[in-house]
Computed example of a mutant assay.
Amino acid sequence: MVRVINYQSVEKENGEEFLMLVLQGGVEPVKSQATGKMYFTARTVKVPATFDEETCKSLIGSQFEGTIAKVPSEPYEYTIKETGEIVTINHRYEFLTGVDAILKEQVVNSDLVH
């Protein structure tokens, strides 16, 4: 289950604006790679929407079936705001409906099959 926690206006390169819903998944425990200590977090993702601002605002608090999954991506650099440290990341987060999540877990990538 994911919940709409906010919305955001984004400007395209051509100057056109569109809205994105900010979705958040459930709370999950994570072990810090730096300290080895556990902490709690929740994955968030921004998903484009075709709604107007009033509709996006009214959706805050709504829940939808699905999950936010960590998916591989081309490596990119990210600056941690709190420390200024630049790290290389090779994943992104994506909203998946229940069916999409099952398919992603159960279907074997054809590159892995000989």
Rank of each mutant, 00 (worst) to 15 (best):
T67S: 07
G26R: 10
L21S: 00
P48F: 02
K46T: 08
K46V: 01
M20Q: 14
K46Y: 10
P48Q: 04
Y39Q: 08
T67K: 05
T67I: 04
E53R: 05
I68E: 00
V30I: 15
A49Y: 06
V47N: 00
C56Q: 03
S32V: 06
E17I: 10
V27N: 12
I68T: 00
F40N: 15
Q33G: 14
V45A: 02
K37F: 05
A69W: 02
F18S: 04
E28L: 14
G15S: 01
A42M: 08
F64E: 02
G61T: 03
F51W: 14
K70W: 01
L23H: 00
G66Y: 03
V47Y: 02
P29L: 02
G66L: 05
S62E: 14
E16F: 12
G36M: 03
S32L: 06
G25S: 08
F51V: 08
M20I: 11
E65P: 09
L23W: 04
V27P: 07
G66H: 04
V47F: 07
Q63G: 10
G26M: 07
G26S: 08
V30A: 13
T35E: 13
V27D: 14
P29A: 12
I68V: 09
F51M: 06
A49M: 12
C56H: 05
G25N: 03
F64R: 11
K57L: 07
K31W: 08
V45C: 01
L21H: 00
G26F: 12
S62Y: 13
